[in-house]
């Protein structure tokens, strides 16, 4: 058990030691280790996405009394791979009236931003790629950059539907970033740190979801909106905007957007687990298994919401953020602050 728990940490140390023994400087070894870590993350993310997409299709199928993909491989597990191959081999279509540079870079920007989120996530005890002191802040600020990619896609497509989708996405992001930060602040106040590993360690005795139920609910709603997932999937809104910001995209570029969305989904679910559900802490299993398990359970809830609820109207969405979520989170902050002050 002990070996499993520290397997990856030991492995990393072994690599560094090995490199140093081969005569490399300590800094060089660290850099090589960092590159290996990034490569691992990219690999894990890709595999993870393939599973995720399959899972979402299965779950939505089951909810809708269908079987979901079930032809390719056992229970259709290879369906996503087949789809990916199909998308990769599709003709690369760039409409002639688009702003070519912006149109081309948007999906790349989007996927890079979503991959950057993983840098600060502690996947296990001492297993963050970079254990930033300002981890939470970093996560939020990088996460909000995703909107720029959507705006680029919408603007570069030179299509009115895409532009509407992009506009919606920006409006939604600006309104929901604030309650998101406020609800996370309450957690940070209790933990007394912006470092994610510290926050996880602060939940040794009790999960923050029990200390901060209000913050959790507001955070969850705001996170759904941030992720552009149903019932807040305004920018895409296929029944209204055909495909919103993605209307003009096809083939691999479209697949990149899709990939990035699921990458984001996993990152945010992992953040939820870290902030409210004790992150990698858990009995019996090694710590680096607990975080994915928790994240997956949270993702199932995201799926469940999306496949049940109708889409909210844009103005209700804004009103809900400014008139309900922000006051509630502010009040929650004040109460948390007072309680913390008197407990001291």
């Amino acid at each position: 058990m002990k070996g499993a728990e520290t397997f990856f940490v030991d492995l990393a140390r072994a690599i560094v030691n090995g490199l140093e023994n081969m005569g490399m400087s300590a800094l060089g070894a660290e850099i090589i280790l960092l590159i290996i870590k990034f490569a691992c993350i990219a690999g894990i993310v890709t595999v993870n996405i393939i599973i995720l997409i399959w899972l979402e299709r299965k779950i939505s199928g089951f909810i809708q009394l269908r079987l979901g993909p079930n032809r390719l491989g056992p229970w259709g597990v290879f369906q996503t791979i087949a789809d990916a191959i199909k998308l990769l081999t599709k003709e690369d279509i760039i409409p002639s009236q688009t702003d070519k540079i912006i149109f081309r870079t948007a999906p790349i920007v989007f996927i890079i931003i979503s991959l950057m989120l993983y840098v600060v996530l502690p996947f296990g005890d001492g297993m963050a790629i970079v254990d930033l002191n300002l981890g939470v802040l970093y996560f939020i600020s990088v996460g909000s950059l995703g909107t720029i990619a959507l705006l680029m896609a919408g603007w570069g497509s030179n299509n009115k539907w895409s532009l509407l989708g992009a506009m919606r996405s920006v409006a939604q992001m600006i309104s929901y970033e604030i309650p998101l930060v406020f609800s996370l602040l309450a957690v940070v106040m209790i933990a007394g740190s912006l470092n994610m590993s510290d926050i996880v360690n602060a939940q040794d005795k009790i999960w923050f979801v029990f200390l901060q139920p209000v913050a959790f609910i507001t955070y969850f709603i705001a996170a759904t909106a941030e992720l552009n997932r149903g019932p807040f999937d305004m920018p895409e809104a296929e029944q209204e905007l055909t495909a919103g910001a993605y209307t003009e995209y096809s083939g691999m570029r479209w697949a990149l957007f899709f990939l990035a969305e699921y990458t984001n989904l996993f990152a945010v679910s992992a953040l939820t687990a870290i902030m409210f559900f004790g992150g990698f802490k858990g009995p019996f299993l090694p710590s680096w298994l607990w975080l994915p398990i928790k994240a997956y359970i949270i993702m199932l809830v995201f799926f469940w919401l999306k496949w049940t609820l109708p889409r909210i109207r844009m103005d209700h969405l804004m009103a809900f953020s400014w008139k309900v979520l922000i006051p509630v989170t502010l009040a929650n902050l004040v109460v948390t602050g007072c309680v913390l002050h008197f407990l001291k």
Partner: peptide, 16 residues
């Protein structure tokens, strides 16, 4: 109506 306002699942139950 359900699918038009985004509740995809409602459609399936009605079709069933």
């Amino acid at each position: 109506l359900a699918i038009d306002i985004g509740a995809t699942t409602g459609l399936i139950y009605c079709f069933r």
